[in-house]
């Protein structure tokens, strides 16, 4: 059950990331993906609880680092381009 919910939440987050028009929405979608990851870890607690807890701790730290980097990216984007819209990002993907 947890794995199914985890997969569905990850799908919702993917759809959100694909349809995001600004970077704030992208940040929220990434955090939703982590919610899916946390749910997917639960079955591991039945077999290897210590490893599962270790994976959970590392996932939480990873998400914290992702949040820090994305927030600084949003702030820098706002400073340089006067906006946080996805269309204002002109490198790292399609360029106009």
């Amino acid at each position: 059950m947890e794995l199914l919910i985890a997969l569905l939440i990850t799908f919702v987050a993917f759809l959100m990331a694909l349809s995001a028009k600004d970077t704030v929405r992208l940040l929220i979608s990434l955090e939703l993906m982590f919610a899916g990851v946390f749910l997917a870890i639960i079955p591991l607690f039945a077999k290897i609880p210590d490893t599962a807890f270790a994976i959970l701790v590392v996932a939480i730290f990873t998400s914290g680092a992702e949040l820090l980097i994305l927030i600084s990216a949003i702030v820098i984007l706002d400073k340089l381009k006067r906006g946080v819209e996805i269309q204002k990002i002109s490198t790292g993907g399609d360029t106009e």
Partner: peptide
């Protein structure tokens, strides 16, 4: 999603043994 919901094994059950705090 529909394929997963239809074919996901619903009988998967497990007991959590420990909370992993010793980690």
């Amino acid at each position: 999603s529909a394929t997963l919901i239809l074919h996901f094994p619903s009988a998967v059950s497990f007991n959590v043994l420990s909370n992993g705090i010793s980690f």
